[in-house]
Amino acid sequence: MKNLLAALLVTFSMSLIAQNQGKVPSVDVKTMDYETFNTSKISNNGKPVVINFWATWCSPCKRELNNIAYMYEDWVEETGVKIIAVSIDDARNMGKVAPYVNGKSWEYDILLDPNGDLKRAMGVNNVPHTFLVDGNGDIVWQHNSYSEGDEYELYELIKKLSAGESISK
């Protein structure tokens, strides 16, 4: 048991050296065409990226993404932000993601994480869970769950990042 504690301590001290959440982990997920995509390639020409974990069976997730969809065009125009909606639907519902996304006319980039590999790598407990990634590719903010109006807070942060300001955690 002592050894275990020592091991955990070492791990923790390493975590102290690593100040923030760091970069998006490198995990193979799928695109909507079922092609493999490695998440370390997520980038947006120095502009912020939002990574939002959702599922077709999660109603707050859909409320959030549908609410943002009304404003997404303006968000992109004003800040250059890109939203990547990562569906954690498994084989049961994975095939329904594209019909849903297109049926709702969402303009987001969509990734599929059917066995929760990215979800696990990013420490997500439950959906919806939103990460904000700055222009350097560093994860600078996260938020779990969704209430009506949360999108305004998110957008304020996106605007700050887009203007080159840092956001305090």
């Binding site: 390493m14 690593a18 959440q21 790598a121 990013m122 420490g123 407990n125």
Partner: peptide
């Protein structure tokens, strides 16, 4: 090397 390392996780 250590600077590049990071810890993530979750708790419930």
């Amino acid at each position: 090397v250590l600077n590049k390392g990071k810890i993530t996780g979750n708790f419930q």
